[in-house]
């Protein structure tokens, strides 16, 4: 009798392994579990014969039965895990997507390329303790010319053909007017940039626009020298165009700076070797600069024995066209969404 029960238990254990191996789904597994371990299952069925055994034999048989149960439970757990893994893999396989189909877009607008570059320039200066100043676009002749050492009939006015409203009020031709307004308002030390629109009579073509933007900079402090002008331009160029950019200044003439300089940077396409982009020169002109003319400082009541300063101006559009490789300035004002969204 005892032997019989033990044999039965052994048989359940032996066959369970094979039967589990043939299981294909969670459902089958559940059914098998009930069949083996359930209330009316095979194991319970065998154990129900225990009552017929003599009491002294029951513990040993009971222990054997528990071992079989544990064994089967362990096997079922493992089988279940494997089954779940297989089923998950199958599910993931079925959920496979074509990742090359387009995304569900949330429409976000684009900054105008001029704003992108201007914001970078502003941030670069802000990080060096500058503030951003502004002044009117419709301006008095005084601020745009006279105070900048460009009296009426000065030939330098020729290079800046001007739109007028009255003999005295005009559309500013340079943001340098803001230099004067700034120095009227605040005393040195001064560290400002003044970006803004400027206007010059120019027929519209691929390289000319009657409206464009300049970024003016002004530093007035004690002990400012030409070295500082050069060093500051150098830092700005590096911040805007990368660490490998070199800056070059060479003599030029502006009535409101003395000495004056033209600012060029090494070509950011060829690094100065000379290419199609920089017309073989290796350098790209980006603006003008100089030490603030003492006549200008004195006009504004700044003591030139104590203070000196430098100023610079850059054309924004030129930077934008170069950076994005745009060959026609009109694109910037045309506002074709295909253009705006392509950058």
């Amino acid at each position: 009798m005892e032997l019989n029960i033990k044999e039965q238990l052994e048989q359940i254990r032996a066959t369970a392994k094979d039967r589990l191996a043939q299981i294909g789904s969670s459902e089958e597994l559940e059914n098998l579990k009930v069949k083996l371990l359930g209330k009316k299952g095979e194991l319970t069925n065998v154990l129900s014969q225990m009552g017929k055994l003599p009491p002294e034999m029951r513990p040993a048989v009971g222990q054997a039965a528990n071992e079989v149960r544990s064994f089967i439970e362990e096997k079922i757990k493992t089988a279940k895990q494997q089954l779940e893994e297989r089923e998950l893999l199958r599910k993931l396989e079925n959920e496979k997507l074509d990742v090359t189909l387009p995304g569900k877009a949330h429409r976000t607008g684009k900054k105008h390329p001029c704003s992108v570059v201007l914001d970078e320039v502003k941030d670069a200066f802000i990080s060096m303790g500058f503030t951003v100043a502004s002044g009117p676009e419709v301006e008095y002749d005084y601020y745009n010319f006279e105070a900048l050492n460009i009296p009426k009939y000065h030939p330098a006015r020729d290079t800046q053909d001007t739109f007028y409203f009255t003999d005295d009020i005009l559309l500013r031709t340079q943001t340098s007017s803001v230099q004067i307004r700034t120095m009227e308002k605040i005393k040195p030390p001064i560290r400002v940039i003044a970006p803004g629109r400027v206007y010059r009579i120019d027929e519209v073509d691929a390289t000319h626009s009657p409206i464009f933007h300049q970024i003016e900079g002004l530093v007035v402090d004690k002990g400012i020298t030409m070295s500082h002008l050069k060093g500051s331009l150098d830092i700005i160029a590096k911040k805007l165009f990368g660490e490998s950019i070199k800056t070059r200044i060479r003599p030029d003439y502006f009535p409101f700076t003395e000495p004056s300089a033209e600012i060029s940077i090494s070509c950011f396409k060829c690094g100065g070797e000379g290419c199609k982009f920089c017309k073989g020169e290796g350098w790209i002109e980006i603006g003008g600069a100089g030490m603030v003319n003492p006549k200008v400082l004195e006009l504004l009541g700044i003591d030139t024995n104590e203070y000196s300063g430098f100023a610079f101006g850059m054309g924004l559009e030129r930077l934008v066209l170069r950076r994005y490789n745009i060959d026609d300035i009109r694109m910037l004002f045309e506002n074709d969404v295909r253009f705006l969204e392509s950058l």
Binding site: G129, T131, P189, T225, G231, T247, R248, P251
Partner: peptide, 19 residues
């Protein structure tokens, strides 16, 4: 001009930034 040494100016800390 190319023999002038580029230096950044030394100045007191200023509270720059946007308004």
């Amino acid at each position: 001009y190319d023999r002038i040494e580029p230096l950044f100016f030394k100045a007191d800390v200023k509270s720059g930034g946007y308004t």
